[in-house]
C-alpha cells in the first residue's frame, strides 16, 4: 500500500509567535520550528499500517527550506522517502491555495491513502483534509481515532461530541487523525542515522504542474488586513468584603452585563 503522510512544520507552541510586519504572514525565522504535533500521530499511523500491510510511506511537506528538519524527523521515525514542495511562489498561500498545491503534488506522487493530522497548531483552520479530498476526488474520512484497512476498503472510527461514527470508504482516500489514535514513536538513533540517507525529492511549482496564479499570498482568498499583539491582561478588580461584599460583587457583574 502506498501511503503518503502530509506533515507541516509549525512554530513551537511554547514560544512567542509573531507575524511579519511587511506581508503579515507568520515570521518563521524568528521561532523554532517543530513538527505539527497531530502530524506525528499521522506518521505513526502510517507506519503502523505499513507494518501490518506492507507498502511504502512517503512524507510530503510544503514549506520553506527550514522544513527539511520536519522531513528528517518523519524519516527518522521510519518513513521511507520524502517529497518537499518548495517554491517562493507558494509563500503566503491560504488553505485554498495550499490544498490545491498539495493536491497537485499528491497526484504526481500517486497514493492509495493520504493521512494527515486533523489540524495544524499555527493556522488551525482544520479544513485541509476536507479540501484535499475534494480536490483529489476521493472519500474523506476525518477525525479518526482508529483506522483499519482491509484490502481496498478502509474503516475508521470518527470521534464526535456524542461518541463516534463508524465510517467506511474505498481506497484511495484521505484520512485525518486525532491525538487519541496512537502513541507516536520516538525516533531511535538507528532511525536518525538512516534518515540522513533516505531520498528527499524537491518539487517546485512547475514540477508539480501547479498554476502559480492560483497560489501564494496575492492569490489567497483570505487576507490578513491588520493585526495587533494581545493586550496584556489587566489587573482584575478586587472586592474587599466589608459586610457588603455580595452586593459589590453583584454590582460588578451587573455592570459587565453578566447578570
Amino acid at each position: 500500500m502506498n501511503i503518503v503522510v502530509c506533515v507541516k512544520q509549525v512554530p513551537d507552541t511554547a514560544t512567542e509567535r509573531k507575524l511579519r510586519s511587511d506581508d503579515k504572514t507568520l515570521d518563521r525565522d524568528a521561532v523554532d520550528g517543530v513538527v505539527n504535533e497531530l502530524d506525528e500521530y499521522a506518521v505513526e499511523e502510517a507506519l503502523k499500517l505499513k507494518e501490518a500491510h506492507g507498502g511504502e510511506v512517503t512524507v510530503l511537506t510544503m514549506g520553506p527550506g527550514k522544513a527539511t528538519e520536519t522531513i528528517r524527523k518523519a524519516l527518522a521515525m521510519g518513513a521511507d522517502k520524502a517529497v518537499h514542495l518548495i517554491d517562493d511562489a507558494l509563500h503566503g498561500s491560504d488553505a485554498l491555495g495550499t490544498s490545491y498545491a498539495m493536491a497537485q503534488a499528491l497526484k504526481k506522487i500517486g497514493f492509495d491513502l493520504v493521512i494527515l493530522g486533523s489540524e495544524s497548531t499555527d493556522a488551525r483552520t482544520g479544513v485541509l483534509p476536507a479540501m484535499l479530498a475534494e480536490r483529489l476526488g476521493t472519500p474523506q474520512l476525518t477525525l479518526a481515532n482508529k483506522v483499519e484497512v482491509d484490502g481496498s476498503s478502509i474503516k475508521i472510527q470518527r470521534i464526535t461530541d456524542y461518541g463516534f461514527d463508524r465510517v467506511e470508504a474505498s481506497l484511495p482516500a484521505v484520512v485525518s487523525v486525532v491525538e487519541k489514535i496512537n502513541e507516536p514513536r520516538y525516533p531511535s538513533f538507528k532511525g536518525i542515522m538512516a534518515a540522513k540517507k533516505k531520498p528527499v525529492e524537491t518539487l517546485g511549482v512547475a514540477d508539480a504542474e501547479i498554476d502559480a496564479a492560483q497560489v501564494g499570498l496575492d492569490s489567497s482568498w483570505s487576507q490578513v488586513v491588520d493585526f495587533a499583539p494581545a493586550p496584556p491582561r489587566a489587573a482584575g478588580t478586587i472586592v474587599k468584603d466589608e459586610g457588603d461584599g455580595g452586593a459589590k460583587a453583584a454590582e460588578f457583574l451587573a455592570s459587565k452585563k453578566f447578570i
Partner: peptide, 8 residues
C-alpha cells in the same frame, strides 16, 4: 533500549 529499540 532507547537508541536502538526506541523502547522506554
Amino acid at each position: 533500549q532507547v537508541m536502538v529499540e526506541s523502547s522506554f
